[in-house]
Design a protein around this nucleic acid. Sequence first.
DNA 1: CGGATTTGACCCGCGC
DNA 2: GCGCGGGTCAAATCCG
Length: 131
Amino acid sequence: MSSSSREAMEGYGEEQDMEQRGHRLVLPEDGYQWKKYGQKFIRNIGKVRSYFKCQRSNCTAKKRAEWSTSEPDNIRVVYEGVHSHALPAPESGSSRPGTDSSLNANQYDLLTQVLGDRSTPSYHDHDHGDN
DNA sequence: CGGATTTGACCCGCGC
DNA sequence: GCGCGGGTCAAATCCG
């Protein structure tokens, strides 16, 4: 107790550890930096939609991640807009092809899989690209 | 300290 | 004309 620790009391509580616990909510990293500016549960499809925006100054590209609340493995990523700047350089440092290539390929494969998944229910027809 | 991230509330568009 | 849904912004908070 001691005085009023109002903030200490509210700013705590376990909550749900985000989804980083036993689940593997791994969003397809495309190499760009995104800033999450919103998250809402869409009842129309019963899924959660996260909104990301490119952190670049002249980049108006936006990214939308959508996944079902019970199956985070099934993520649907939609890119809106185009990047007016080249990639921020993944991480050059050492090596490139061969070593982390497998990791990159893994993520890329996931992304492709997600984008190729059109098992979505019938909701708005946001044809972003083709599918 | 800065940057990043989260949650809530507000706003707008469309449908009927 | 009104209501609902979805989308965005802002503020607060936390971590490194």
